[in-house]
Design a protein around this nucleic acid. Structure first.
Length: 676
DNA sequence: CTTAGGG
DNA sequence: CCCTAAG
């Protein structure tokens, strides 16, 4: 039997849909999941006739289309409206998906079993895992070139299945059969637990959402007749619709009477982008051939050797720094990730002991392990080794806001930057066993219960922000990370003007632990402007807002500009300011006295070799400021006072070495003259 | 990668 | 601290 997978964003949308028919727990559960997971795959069975050929091709197709119009301008919804629109869209999607399968608009999530709520969720995850597997295992290894054909198959298969109409988003993934074969249901501990935790979903729906529900519902209804959509090829296209894009951005359905079309398109766009970001690990092999080797192999191409140093630096404790420098390298990461998966696919690639090691290494080394949840683990027994296979990490949900005039290229970059930031921001891997976080790092796998005979789906991995900040809850909910955001602002106060298009939308939790997610949130907000920083100029074409959504509290929805300076679209963050201590100054002075002022590399090695956060440039800069400080009056000095004695030495040394340097130059000049 | 300087 | 031109 086949199944269709729909990947969509159900963050806000769900409210609408579910509210309406949330009579049963099933819906609530789903709703919850949506909240928690943010993104998910909805799997539906499709006609058994669908061929296997279409397996796992959906996502590819999606991505493919995504970038079809590389050079065209992408039009993205302009504002705040996006929120509600998206919601509408989502509900539509769900509806349609359902209809396609069951032709009933009543059962959004048809369930056959008692506690279907949960079951469905499981299914969903499973499907994803399956997809992943297909993508990885499938003969993709060496036939990247067959992509096109695959795509076709996928499409045709879909048609055959009798599922006529696919909405833009809907067509995202289509797979067939699978339920039976070794498909390993992937239940993220996260999701599971979230569902089980009444605390999580017992909460009332966010006011924000509920307010719009009235509007949405009717809209959904309109779209229901999906069965009659087959003809509208247009609808099937995921991305290439630049033509009618224009018709959208403008009208924001404030009333039910407004046309749905525009709305859904807007939403679509939104989702597409999100999807793109989520499928990034797949995309490279689709379109961006620059990332592929000539032979179409998926092997990553390392083109940035220079990246090493900087990367190293960034790994020290300069989390955000220079990420943009890796634009190239970063972009290729997906490939690596993919490669990794492919490799791990090989039975021989089993990892023993430190399972995550190998994979993480591969991903991590590239700084790209994405965050969150995914988990597809297979534990096989071979001797006393436990083999784990991490199919992929799912990237946390991202919201991207970009001006309509932004190019596709910039969109790509933006997404990449967001991912890079997320991935390189100091995440750590969390291990989940049956949904529970394994906290004791010292336990052996065996002690923990991860043994060769352990259920395949019991183990999970999650990328988490900050080890010490995780909530006690079993739910590794916070697995998603946040991009640098400034002080959150309640969504309700979101200014409905176009400027919002340039702001980041950040769904964040007010909870302390979330507020401290990872290192992304810089501590020095000295110049942090308000979320509505006016410096964000509309003429600016730079994209902004990239935000991973910590799925927990929707109520905490907040909108914030990710970048203070509109100029900087990069996610790259400034390093944290770390004032030099007197001790450090002392060491610096001493080193300079000995080595002089032109050998910062040596100074670094001599006096700050173990201070990873001090680069030779830092030392050079510090010396510069020290000299300046020594020259100004004590009253003008700021910060921790530096002993006058040291300042005196600074001046002395500076004078000495300056003279020395001058002499050296004279000498050389003289020699040069002589030679001539 | 290092330096040197401006920002 | 960042960014960059230069070497």
């Amino acid at each position: 039997m086949g199944s269709m997978v729909i990947r969509c964003l159900l963050r806000l949308e769900r409210r609408v849909t579910f509210k309406k028919r949330a009579e049963d727990n099933q819906m609530r559960a789903f709703d919850l999941l949506a909240t928690v997971a943010g993104e998910m795959l909805l799997e539906r069975e499709s006609s058994p006739s669908s061929s296997n050929a279409s397996k796992g091709n959906g996502p590819i197709a999606c991505v493919q289309n995504m970038w079809e119009n590389e050079d065209k301008l992408v039009k993205i919804e302009q504002s705040y409206q996006g929120f509600s629109d998206r919601r509408v869209l989502a509900s539509e999607l769900v509806q349609q998906a359902d209809d396609q399968k069951y032709g009933s608009e009543e059962s959004l999530f048809p369930q056959n079993d008692g506690h279907s709520g949960f079951a469905s969720i499981v299914t969903i995850d499973s499907s994803e895992g399956f997809v992943d597997q297909r993508l990885v295992n499938g003969k993709n290894k060496n036939d990247t070139g067959s992509f096109a054909s695959k795509l076709d198959l996928g499409v045709s298969g879909y048609r055959e299945s009798g599922v006529c109409k696919l909405d833009c988003e809907t067509k995202i993934m289509i797979k067939d059969e699978l339920h039976n074969n070794g498909k390993v249901p992937i239940v993220t501990g996260t999701d599971k637990c979230s569902l089980e935790d009444p605390e999580v979903w017992d909460g009332k729906p966010p006011a924000l959402v509920s307010s719009d529900s009235s509007v949405k519902v009717p809209l959904c209804g309109d779209h229901i007749p999906c069965s009659s959509f087959p003809a509208s090829r247009d609808d099937v296209k995921i991305v290439s619709r630049d033509d009618d894009e224009k018709s959208s951005g403008c009208t924001h359905p404030s009333t039910i009477t407004k046309s749905i079309r525009p709305v859904s398109r807007i939403g679509n766009r939104r989702i597409r982008k999100i999807l793109a970001s989520k499928h990034w690990k797949v995309s490279p092999k689709l379109k961006d051939d620059t990332l592929l080797n000539n032979d179409g192999d998926l092997k990553p191409i390392c083109r940035n050797r220079k990246g090493y140093y900087k990367r190293q630096r960034s790994q020290m404790n300069i989390p955000f720094k220079k990420r943009k420098i890796f634009e190239r390298g970063s972009v290729s990461n997906p490939n690596r990730l993919f490669t990794c998966e492919g490799k791990s696919d090989s039975p021989e690639k089993g990892i023993n002991g430190d399972a995550s090691g190998s994979c993480v290494k591969m991903h991590g080394a590239t700084g790209t392990s994405s965050s969150v949840v995914c988990q597809h683990t297979s534990i096989q027994s071979r001797d006393s080794y436990v083999k784990l296979r991490i199919k992929s990490f799912r990237v946390p949900e991202l919201f991207i806001e970009m001006p309509e005039t932004a190019s596709v290229g910039s969109l790509k970059r933006t997404v990449m930057e967001a991912l890079t930031a997320i991935l390189g921001g100091g995440l750590h891997v969390g291990v989940l066993l049956r949904g529970k976080k394994v906290r004791d790092d010292n336990k052996t796998l065996l002690q923990t219960g991860i043994s060769h005979d352990y259920p395949l789906d019991a183990l999970g991995f999650a990328l988490e922000p900050n080890p010490s900040q995780n909530p006690p809850s079993i739910c590794p909910r916070n697995s998603s990370c946040m991009l640098p955001c400034d002080t959150p602002q309640p969504l309700t106060s979101y200014p409905p003007d176009s400027t919002v298009a340039h702001q980041a939308i950040c769904h964040s939790s007010p909870e302390p632990h979330l507020a401290n997610l990872g290192n992304f949130i810089e501590s020095d907000h000295d110049s942090a402007p308000s979320p509505t920083d006016t410096s964000v100029d509309k003429s600016t074409t730079d994209s902004k807002a990239l935000v991973a959504v910590p799925e927990m509290n929707v109520e905490a929805l907040a909108v914030v500009p990710v970048h203070r300076k509109s100029k900087r679209s990069e996610i790259a963050q400034r390093r944290i300011r770390r004032p030099f201590s007197v001790t450090e100054v002392e060491a610096l002075v001493q080193a300079v006295e000995k080595l002089g002022t032109g050998r910062w590399r040596d100074v670094k090695l001599l006096a700050f070799d173990n201070a990873k956060h001090r680069t030779y440039v830092d030392l050079k800069d510090k010396w510069k400021t020290l000299v300046h400080t020594a020259r100004i009056s004590p009253q003008q000095r700021r910060g921790e006072p530096v002993p006058q004695e040291l300042l005196d030495r600074v001046l002395t040394a500076h004078a000495f070495w300056s003279k020395q340097q001058a002499r050296q130059q004279l000498k050389q000049h003289a020699e040069t003259c002589l030679l001539i």
